[in-house]
């Protein structure tokens, strides 16, 4: 669902039109569940976070002054619900990622520098992500340290802006940019490893 549609549904609900209710709930419930599942690592926690978030959303819908902001507003509430719920992350402990660990290796055979990197041209460009690749992507995001994972989920999966992400996570925009870049490099590296192990996989 595009952001425009979400905004329209929010407008209808604010105007008191309950016909938008089920579509709105179904859409955001799946989104919040997915974010929480990748942040908390537990299905049951993610289900609870989704319900608690939506409950809070409906209780305080009047606080949403600008329907255009419905997605970041909901993720702000979801992030807080997730923090309350979260047990110790099952995926990875919090740690800092440094740029240097993602610098690509060069080989200098024949006097010319060549990047040691998989053949990314074989990556499918169609709309459907194959399930195996999807699993690799999910695992790569899931293995990111938590403070990087939340940034990448909000920026690249939920496609929120740098400013919206900064406001939700209570960070400066510069910190969001720094973490996003390192998170992307880490995920890129995992995908590269996957593509390197069998070049035919991307086809």
């Amino acid at each position: 669902m595009e952001r425009d549609t979400e905004v329209e549904l929010a407008r209808q609900l604010i105007a008191g039109n309950p016909e938008a209710f089920d579509r709105f709930v179904e859409h955001f419930r799946a989104k919040i569940f997915h974010y929480s599942w990748l942040m908390c690592g537990q299905r049951e926690d993610a289900e609870e976070v989704a319900q608690e978030t939506l409950l809070k959303v409906f209780e305080s819908f009047d606080h949403l002054r600008d329907p255009e902001r419905v997605r970041p507003w909901i993720f702000q509430i979801a992030k807080n619900a997730c923090l309350m719920k979260r047990r110790k992350s099952v995926f990875a402990p919090s740690k800092e990622l440094s740029l240097d660990e993602f610098l690509p290796t060069m080989s200098h055979a024949g006097g010319h520098g060549k990047l040691q990197i998989a053949d990314w041209s074989s990556l499918p460009d169609d709309r459907m992500l194959r399930s195996e690749l999807k699993g690799v992507l999910e695992q790569a995001i899931g293995e990111l340290p938590e403070n990087y994972r939340s940034v990448m989920l909000l920026r690249d999966v939920e496609e929120l802006s740098t400013l919206e992400t900064a406001q939700i996570l209570d960070l400066t925009e510069d910190v969001v940019k720094t973490r996003l870049h390192r998170a992307r490099l880490a995920v890129r590296q995992k995908l590269d490893e996957y593509l390197s192990t069998s070049p035919a996989r991307g086809k």
């Binding site: 419930r29 799946a30 569940f33 997915h34 599942w37 999807k134 699993g135 992507l137 999966v157």
Partner: peptide
Amino acid sequence: LCHRYQPTELP
């Protein structure tokens, strides 16, 4: 890929 990604795990 992240932009095109649709979650497999649903509630």
